[in-house]
Amino acid sequence: MTTAETSAMTSAVTAPVRRALVGAAAVASALVIGSAGTASAATMGFHQTSTSGKAEISGTYEYHVSGTVPQTGEKLYSGSFAGATAKDKVAGDGYEAVLALAYQDWKDGAWHRVTNYVAVVNGSKSWSFKNKKDVKAYACDRKVGTTKLLNCRAAW
């Protein structure tokens, strides 16, 4: 076998090996970045209408791991809503727009389920939270002067 043939054969064999090693390094980097990313903040814009189309919600939602439950190691989340808006798309119809929340709240050593928490009615505001999980925002209608939420649709 000539030197050129040996060199060509070596290149043919090592190219796939190099590609595999580069691929493995890329996967390892992604895993490291991914696991580091879980500790950093996640931010997302949201926009949704109620099932009737009469209410519209929007804003920015940010959350991050802020601690763990001592007994179980389960993650606690903190974060914020910025520019969270509930807009009435059909003014004068007797209904108002509501941005409602559902979440789990960690307090007094236990998780407490909170549903239909009215966060914004026909307006906009920003706030922060801590020690929550499973946070979901909903666009809902509500008849003026009542508390019952209607036609709710989850934003995520």
Rank of each mutant, 00 (worst) to 15 (best):
Y63S: 12
V120L: 03
V69W: 09
G92Y: 08
A86G: 12
S40T: 10
T51L: 06
A102Q: 12
T49E: 14
G79I: 01
F81G: 00
K107D: 10
Y77T: 01
P70G: 07
I57D: 00
Y61I: 00
V69T: 08
D93H: 02
W111L: 04
K75Y: 14
K125H: 10
H112K: 15
G94V: 04
Q71M: 09
D88S: 07
G92I: 09
A82V: 13
H64M: 11
T72Y: 03
V69G: 07
Y103V: 03
Q104G: 13
Y77M: 03
A84R: 04
V121F: 08
D93W: 04
A55I: 03
S40K: 11
L101M: 13
Q71K: 15
A91T: 15
G59Q: 06
S124F: 03
V121R: 15
K75N: 14
A42L: 11
L76T: 06
S80W: 06
T68H: 15
H112N: 15
V69C: 06
E96A: 13
S58Y: 12
V65Y: 07
S124L: 02
V69M: 08
Y103C: 02
A119K: 07
A100E: 03
N122V: 09
G67I: 11
G67F: 09
F81M: 07
T49P: 00
L99V: 00
V120P: 02
Q71Y: 05
W106C: 07
G94F: 06
Y103P: 01
Y95M: 10
A84I: 04
S124R: 10
E56N: 09
G92K: 11
T43N: 04
Y117K: 15
T49Y: 08
G79W: 00
T60G: 08
K125S: 14
Y77D: 01
P70V: 13
R113T: 15
H47P: 01
A102T: 14
H112C: 08
K75R: 15
G59W: 07
G53S: 03
Y103W: 10
A110T: 15
V98E: 03
Q104P: 06
M44T: 11
E62K: 09
V98L: 03
E62Y: 00
W106A: 06
G79E: 00
G59K: 04
A55T: 04
E96I: 11
I57T: 00
K107S: 12
V90D: 14
K87M: 08
V69E: 11
L101Q: 12
H112F: 10
Y77H: 07
A110G: 11
Y117F: 11
Y95T: 13
V120Y: 01
G92D: 13
A97K: 01
T60W: 03
Q48R: 09
G83Y: 10
G92Q: 09
S80G: 14
E74W: 14
L76Y: 07
L76D: 06
A119N: 08
G109W: 00
V65A: 15
Y61C: 00
A82Y: 05
E74V: 07
G59N: 06
